[in-house]
């Protein structure tokens, strides 16, 4: 297999085919989530990754899967899928079933799979960021060479606890990569209305930390930048702050049904021109790596797979009512009854 890039890291055409398949599957999976939500199968808050697929794909395909730790906020389906979590279990969790990753107790925002290195799945904006640094603390304490991918949104980049964490991560040399998924909106508030300085990449600088801004809409470039940064952190045992530019085509969550409150249709059309999947598709055809027909076949397959995942997840029963007290503690239950 010839390498497409001479510089590090080498990315083979098979790798690119894999990225396309994964990104397509994530998008189709998220669309099925929306269908499930509209059908009343999923409830609560549900946030899809549509438009941001190249970002998580580039990073997670650059780590040692199952060894390195990954943690993120509530827009968490893609990270789990890329790490190898069973898609049916993820979907079953999203629709609150016994066969879900957390037995139906977590829901869309709380997907976990520590066996594959995934530590959630958290609902308080910025709240999980110190937990990610704590995972890095454990790695450092045990003299392992794991790194942590600590994802957050641009909204989280204003939270106080994030800066407490940056200070300590730098002070204690923690191998933690803070990745701001800058999709330009904190829920319905545009970046320039929530950030005094919208150049979020600068925000690690006061903590004596390497910082940069990279593009998250081109999976090839994302993959290269991610590998370079991950290798540096593993080698140097220091934290890193990265702002990744991306765009959220969907609303904030499934309940966000009027995007015109905070952006125009014209703006969305311009953003769609940067669609990371269309971009990779075009690259593969132009470079004769895949034919149009071959790509269409993958599109049809991933669509069918995502559909099958939802159907399979629906077969899982609801949790038993007597499970409600299970796993609050490892060794006891709280006082029972109303």
């Amino acid at each position: 297999m010839s390498n497409l890039t001479e510089e590090f890291p080498s990315i083979s055409s098979n790798d690119l085919k894999q990225y396309l398949r994964e990104m397509l599957f994530i998008r189709r999976f998220e669309e099925q989530c929306n269908i499930a939500y509209r059908a009343g199968l999923a409830g609560g808050y549900m946030h899809t990754y549509i438009g941001m697929e190249a970002l998580a794909s580039g990073w997670i395909n650059s780590i040692r899967k199952g060894y390195d730790y990954v943690i993120t906020a509530y827009r968490d389906h893609a990270h789990a899928l890329l790490l190898g979590t069973d898609a049916v279990a993820v979907m079953a969790e999203i629709i609150g079933r016994k066969g879900g990753t957390a037995g139906g107790k977590g829901g869309s925002m709380h997907i976990y799979d520590p066996e594959n290195g995934f530590y959630g799945g958290w609902g308080i904006v910025g709240g999980h960021v110190p937990l990610g640094a704590g995972l890095a603390y454990a790695a450092r304490y045990r003299n392992e060479d794991r790194v942590v991918l600590n994802f957050m949104g641009d909204g989280a980049a204003n939270q106080g606890v994030v800066y407490e964490t940056l200070n300590m991560a730098s002070l204690y040399d923690l191998p933690c990569i803070f990745i701001v998924e800058n999709n330009e909106f904190a829920m319905g508030t545009r970046l320039e209305y929530h950030a005094a300085d919208p150049e979020l990449w600068k925000r690690g600088q006061p903590y004596n930390m390497k910082c940069e801004r990279v593009d998250g809409m081109d999976v090839i470039q994302m993959r290269k930048d991610a590998q370079r940064i991950i290798d540096w952190v593993r080698e140097n045992q220091k934290p890193y702050w990265v702002e990744v530019m991306t765009y959220r085509y969907a609303g904030h969550g499934a309940a966000d049904n009027d995007r015109q409150l905070y952006r125009t249709k014209e703006e969305e059309e311009v953003a769609w021109a940067r669609d990371p999947i269309a971009r990779l598709r075009k690259y593969l055809i132009e470079n004769n790596i895949m034919s149009e027909e071959a790509i269409e076949a993958v599109e049809a397959e991933t669509e069918a797979e995502a559909l099958a995942v939802l159907e399979k997840a629906k077969e899982s029963p609801f949790p038993d009512t007597d499970e409600v007290y299970d796993n609050i503690y490892t060794d006891m239950t709280p006082e029972k009854g109303h």
Binding site: A133, L135, A138, M168
Partner: peptide
């Protein structure tokens, strides 16, 4: 010895406990 940032170090401790410390 931690900085005077209770939320931050409580969270770091929690993450470390999740990983087995």
């Amino acid at each position: 010895d931690t900085p005077i940032t209770e939320a931050g170090f409580a969270g770091i401790a929690t993450g470390a406990a999740m990983a087995g410390l």
